[in-house]
């Protein structure tokens, strides 16, 4: 499938900022089932950018903007060719051993309610366990395609009837780790036919011995298909955040995100 992606992130500040420094994780990498045909990041004002990698192996773009800045928009556009896969990630260089992804973070802390629930899902075969877990999370929640709530932990999301893709992926990670499978958060894009206000998507990956990293999308209860584009991974959503920013100045910020993912 050839996917055309357009992703605009705009910040408006209530007072002019003297400086902005941001770290963007907005660049997908090639893998066996994903080829980046065209990709660019545009900023709507003077900015200096430099590319690098973070500890997880994600491509990063540092963005340095001198003030006064009252607003800024980061515009990402590109085309990615995806092929149908069984969810197994192939052809991606890993910086860290799978065992690292058994760790928890504040957002993926081992919440007792999640652990108690997950304990019943254990099967003899890890892959069956993980598919069962993915399906069970899918069935339990109604997906909320609104803007994710920054800083909401898996434990906090667990008690809700509706949860965002980010919440579901973090719940998956908490449960999978508890069942002994390394798991991580993936940020990226997904083409949803039925979605009114698309947002960047988030799902999960878990490590299965002899297979490698396998994707699981609790929003569908399935493994990611060719309508998914993988961009960044980390222990939780914050670690893989598309934009991590710091600003020098007073006042509040207003964030506006637009995403379009279409078949090209």
């Amino acid at each position: 499938m050839r996917l055309s992606i357009h992703h605009r992130t705009a910040y408006r500040f209530s007072a002019p900022q003297a400086r902005l420094v941001q770290m963007l994780r907005l660049t997908p990498q090639n893998s066996h089932d994903q080829t980046v045909a065209r990709w660019r990041i545009d900023i709507d004002r003077d900015a200096r950018m430099s590319e690098g990698r973070d500890g997880w192996g994600n491509v990063t773009t540092m963005l340095y903007v001198e003030g006064p800045v009252e607003e800024i928009a980061i515009e990402v556009s590109g085309e990615v060719l995806t092929s149908h896969s069984d969810g197994v990630i192939r052809g991606v260089a890993e910086m860290l051993p799978p065992g690292l992804y058994l760790r928890s973070t504040p957002a993926t802390a081992p919440d007792p309610a999640i652990l108690a629930w997950a304990a019943d899902l254990r099967q003899t075969d890890p892959l069956t366990t993980l598919h069962g877990l993915n399906g069970a999370i899918h069935q339990r929640f109604e997906v909320d395609h609104g803007r994710p709530v920054a800083g909401r932990s898996a434990g906090e999301a667990w008690s809700r009837a509706k949860a965002t893709p980010r919440d579901l992926a973090q719940i998956f990670a908490v449960a999978a780790r508890h069942l002994g499978q390394p798991a991580r958060y993936v940020s990226g894009y997904c083409r949803h036919a039925d979605q009114e206000h698309p947002t960047p998507h988030g799902w999960a990956e878990a490590w299965v011995e002899d297979l490698g990293w396998v994707g699981f999308d609790p929003c569908t209860g399935l493994s990611p298909q060719e309508d998914h584009v993988r961009v960044a991974v980390a222990l939780d959503a914050a670690g893989a955040a598309p934009v991590a920013g710091s600003r020098l100045g007073e006042g509040a910020e207003q964030l506006d995100v637009e995403v379009r993912v279409e078949e090209a």
Partner: peptide, 18 residues
């Protein structure tokens, strides 16, 4: 033992590879 390092909060994955 790998878990001694990988599970240790003092091992900082954020700077792995630098």
């Amino acid at each position: 033992p790998s878990d001694l390092i990988l599970g240790n909060p003092q091992f900082r994955p954020e700077i792995a590879g630098i």
